[in-house]
Lab assay of single mutants.
Amino acid sequence: MEVRTIKVFTTVDNINLHTQVVDMSMTYGQQFGPTYLDGADVTKIKPHNSHEGKTFYVLPNDDTLRVEAFEYYHTTDPSFLGRYMSALNHTKKWKYPQVNGLTSIKWADNNCYLATALLTLQQIELKFNPPALQDAYYRARAGEAANFCALILAYCNKTVGELGDVRETMSYLFQHANLDSCKRVLNVVCKTCGQQQTTLKGVEAVMYMGTLSYEQFKKGVQIPCTCGKQATKYLVQQESPFVMMSAPPAQYELKHGTFTCASEYTGNYQCGHYKHITSKETLYCIDGALLTKSSEYKGPITDVFYKENSYTTTIK
């Protein structure tokens, strides 16, 4: 009895394709271990004539594949690729409408935090270190965002349907971005203890939790000093293409032309909904596939993004 075979390709990165001759009487799992086709788990399936010449994702289970996976995804987590594939199996079914010149995501599976993050990423200057993220990001900007969303979920250790947080998501993504040249110098002034300067680099240099107003941050924000008295913390120097200011959701007025974009969060910790506000020729609110415009805006804002380049204080 002759062994019926077909020729397929296996890959971990969709760049390096490895030619395989597979036995049609055995499952993919018996031949390769966990195997995925377009995100779908085909591990328990036997090869079919229609699979001839198709590319299958496999887990990096030998040295060659491990090197290829690390170079593309910059992670050695053995569960990463499987999590990416199972997320992709959902995100490829989502709709990605162009809204006001940006790629958004039609609401499904509690994905409003991903839509808000995706919209924000198209408006701030950011370059990702893992080629996987950078490639998928370019495709997302062009309207094909399924891979990018699935990668975000995998890097953030999230599953489809789980509630997510924009600030946490951005923080994970910033860790995989090139923020080497970003720098922030802060000064804390206390009447009792004097003053202390701190220099922050990388992710810490672009994120701040405690106030939404970048102007206020430049002037000074009140913080408790270690001595128990009130101290003032203010920005001395900022070198970065953008800054992200966050605070627990509270009524906040966004003035046209003073910011790049913002995240609105309605609801409580267990259950809520994100919308995205962007400042173009007027203010726009993007909620999944829905767009509304207004000249002014007041609502429960939790993150505001500002364009920056270089700032030095005039406070002496």
Rank of each mutant, 00 (worst) to 15 (best):
E2V: 11
T5H: 12
N14F: 15
I15F: 10
T19W: 11
V21L: 14
V22G: 09
D23I: 13
Y28T: 05
G29W: 05
T35Y: 05
D38C: 12
G39K: 06
T43D: 09
I45T: 13
P47K: 08
H48K: 13
S50W: 15
G53I: 01
F56S: 04
V58R: 08
N61T: 13
D62P: 08
R66Y: 10
E68M: 07
F70D: 09
E71Y: 10
E71L: 03
Y72P: 05
Y72D: 07
H74R: 13
D77K: 08
D77I: 05
D77A: 05
F80P: 05
G82L: 14
R83D: 03
M85Q: 09
A87T: 04
A87S: 10
L88E: 01
N89G: 13
T91V: 10
K92Y: 09
K92D: 05
K93E: 13
W94R: 06
W94H: 07
K95S: 15
Y96L: 05
Q98K: 13
G101M: 15
I105F: 01
I105W: 02
I105N: 11
K106Q: 15
A108Q: 11
D109Y: 04
D109Q: 15
D109P: 00
N111T: 06
N111M: 09
C112E: 01
C112Y: 03
Y113D: 07
T116A: 12
A117E: 00
A117F: 01
L118P: 07
Q122C: 06
Q123V: 02
I124P: 01
K127I: 08
N129C: 08
P130K: 03
P131K: 12
P131E: 00
A132E: 07
Q134P: 07
Q134R: 13
D135W: 09
A140W: 06
E144W: 07
A146R: 05
C149S: 05
C149Y: 02
C149R: 06
L153Y: 12
Y155M: 01
T159N: 14
E162K: 06
L163K: 07
V166L: 07
T169R: 04
Y172F: 12
F174V: 04
Q175T: 08
Q175G: 11
H176Q: 12
N178R: 09
D180F: 01
R184K: 01
V185R: 05
V189S: 11
V189K: 11
V189M: 09
Q196G: 07
G202F: 03
V203T: 08
A205Y: 00
V206L: 04
M207E: 00
M209L: 11
G210C: 06
E215C: 03
Q216W: 04
Q216I: 06
K218D: 04
G220I: 03
Q222M: 11
C227K: 01
G228T: 03
K229G: 15
T232H: 04
T232F: 11
K233P: 01
Y234E: 02
L235S: 03
Q237G: 03
Q237T: 11
S240H: 00
S240G: 03
S240I: 01
M244E: 01
A247S: 10
P248I: 07
P249T: 00
A250K: 11
Y252K: 02
Y252F: 11
L254A: 05
K255N: 06
H256G: 08
G257Y: 02
G257L: 02
G257H: 05
F259G: 03
T260M: 15
C261D: 02
C261V: 00
C261F: 04
E264G: 04
T266D: 07
N268P: 14
C271Q: 12
H273E: 08
H273W: 00
Y274Q: 00
K275Y: 00
K280V: 06
K280P: 02
K280C: 10
T282C: 14
I286W: 07
G288W: 00
T292P: 00
K293V: 11
S294V: 15
S294W: 15
K298E: 11
K298S: 14
G299Y: 00
T313S: 14
T314G: 14
